[in-house]
Design a protein around this nucleic acid. Sequence first.
DNA 1: AATAAAATCAACCGCGGGGGA
DNA 2: ATCCCCCGCGGTTGATTTTAT
Length: 287
Amino acid sequence: MGRQPCCDKVGVKKGPWTAEEDQKLVGFLLTHGHCCWRVVPKLAGLLRCGKSCRLRWTNYLRPDLKRGLLDDEEERLVIDLHAQLGNRWSKIAARLPGRTDNEIKNHWNTHIRKKLLRMGIDPVTHLPLHEPEPAAPPPPPPPQEQEHHHQPPPPPAQDHRHQPRSDGGLVSQDDGAGEVDLPVVQQHEVTTTAAGSNCGSASSASGGSAAVSVVSPSCSSSASAPAANGVEATEWPEPMYLFGMDGIMDDAWDGLFPNDGGLGGGVDPFDGCYPGGGGFDQDDGWM
DNA sequence: AATAAAATCAACCGCGGGGGA
DNA sequence: ATCCCCCGCGGTTGATTTTAT
């Protein structure tokens, strides 16, 4: 079934967003919300496809985003969750308020992965790397599509089409897996999600409850506990400041999320985009 | 100081799922 | 029951920045 392209490729701008575009998008979303991403760019006067707008919003413009590197706690939580969920970045992100799946995915690939490898831990299975035989890849035998949930390291299923150059280059175990002082995360701490939930109290699966009730206060700690409302504890992303929109935002927010939603009919413009707004999946909830 | 290589991160692509018609 | 549309997800790419030579 040939899918329609998400947008008519012609006349659609691609590449980095400009401040002006950001401003248009934010301005539009704040005043109108998004009924359907497909029409957002048109209505906002942007030469972008809806998908691109959504991505830009969720990954960068969303007001509740926390920017900057993940701190230790967050990192541990990510590792812990990854051990349980595999590459389900959105699920993982859902448990880290203010973080996006893209951000976590990037951080994983650029930082955490390497750390684990240096520690001699397979970032995929979270099990100790069995030294030799670099050639012999992952044993994780049965291709059975396991539904995450408990079961610890479901080899997050190389399920996908092409492994990201399975390590390609990156590591070659090179590193005398020794130096690098990576104090905190001990091997066992990492692998055994169950046991440790490295995050102090945090998370998860003690035993395997499907619902990983993570984000214990201590864990997300510092970082903006999921503020009751989600919003208040966060900082506006730079662009907002740049645009001098914070004022607008304040008002807009009040207008947008009055208890019954100021936008005609209680439509939550940020449904699903933003934690406090009540738009997130219960189970995975931002809560 | 210049150049090359590596690392990082924003953005794109394509697929699958869910829901409505 | 089937088809179609939209959304969201995960993988990948490419531009930019940083670090090493």
